Simulated assay, not measured.
Amino acid sequence: MSAVLSIDKLNKRFGGVVVADDIDLQLGAGEVLGLIGPNGAGKTTLFNLISGVIAADAGNISLGGKRLDSLPVYRRARHGVARTWQHMRLFNSMSVLDNLLIAASSYPGESFWRLIAAGGSVKAAEARNREKAHAILTRMGLAPLAHTNVADITFGQQKLIGMARALMSESPLLLLDEPMAGVEGSAYETMRQIVAEEAASGRAICVVEHNVSFIRALCTSAIFMVRGRIIERGGVEALLESRALAELYFGK
């Protein structure tokens, strides 16, 4: 199986602090890879390097065989990198629906000249985006909140909106940064189901998560990171039972 995401010898340091140390990684379609490790291990930094928020000092990042490491954030997103954030970065003064619409991968109305020359096709594209956004909200049980301001919904619902926004693209790669933090009850079950369905549809998914139950339920494999370095990779159960992992998390 060819890799959706391929990382080779990725390195990054800030001054004397190494945050990515010779990282090699491959992730295939339908895989759910868990990134675990203590705070400061470099998990979110790895997401930032993949998505282009920060630039690597050395190494290669490829998506579907296309090199990404020299591209800015917006071009990586267009090539197929979608992600969520620990702090969701939603537009609180906008409605739930509008938060999804701004994440659409195809929005021809952004071009002034296309809007003037081909207004009909722009309106058709906008209608398709609205239909898609409503379908995602329905799938998540949030359709009644479509026209509610994000600031007026619960934290768990906001987490789901962060996921819904990532799903507005057709990206083959989905990076989820602590999707379950602060999520419980029905929102937890919905998030778990959505991740399982997206993996079954063929998306490659990488998850930073401290919720061990979530990792056990959904991840096909896991990586343990410490100080910007991958210490171990393997099956979830074997990794969670690792003595090295236990000592680094809890002490000897």
Rank of each mutant, 00 (worst) to 15 (best):
A164Y: 05
Y107P: 07
L10R: 00
A3S: 13
G120E: 15
L100Q: 00
I7G: 14
L240E: 10
H134P: 10
N99W: 00
G28E: 07
L68F: 02
V212D: 02
I215M: 06
L248F: 05
A135I: 11
A187W: 11
A246T: 08
V96Y: 10
T220N: 14
E131D: 12
G15N: 09
L63M: 04
S6C: 06
I215A: 04
T148L: 10
S2T: 14
L46K: 05
Q193G: 10
G119K: 13
R83N: 15
T44K: 00
V150F: 06
L5I: 05
H87F: 08
H147P: 04
H79D: 04
D8H: 15
S121D: 14
E184M: 10
M1L: 11
N129C: 14
T138E: 13
T84R: 12
A124F: 06
N92Y: 12
L90N: 09
L142R: 02
R76Y: 14
M140H: 04
G120R: 15
L174I: 13
R128M: 13
G40C: 14
E189S: 13
G65Y: 07
G30P: 15
R76M: 09
A222K: 07
F214Q: 01
L142N: 13
A164M: 10
K132N: 14
A56L: 13
V32E: 03
A125H: 03
R192D: 00
S6P: 02
R165E: 09
N48M: 03
A143T: 02
L101N: 02
M191I: 05
L68Q: 06
D177T: 08
G251H: 10
G162M: 03
N60D: 14
G185R: 07
A164E: 13
E232A: 07
Q26I: 00
R13C: 08
G28W: 01
F14P: 06
K9M: 09
H210F: 02
S242W: 11
G235Y: 01
L27N: 04
L176H: 00
R128N: 06
S201R: 14
F14V: 04
L68G: 14
L101G: 10
I230V: 12
R165V: 13
V4Q: 04
C206Y: 01
T44Y: 00
M1I: 15
I153G: 05
A56R: 12
G52A: 06
R216H: 11
L10P: 00
E197T: 01
D177C: 08
S51H: 07
S70H: 13
G65D: 03
A133M: 12
P179Q: 04
T44D: 11
L173A: 08
S2W: 05
L63S: 11
N60C: 11
G80M: 05
A77N: 10
I102M: 10
G141N: 14
E178K: 04
A127I: 03
R76P: 00
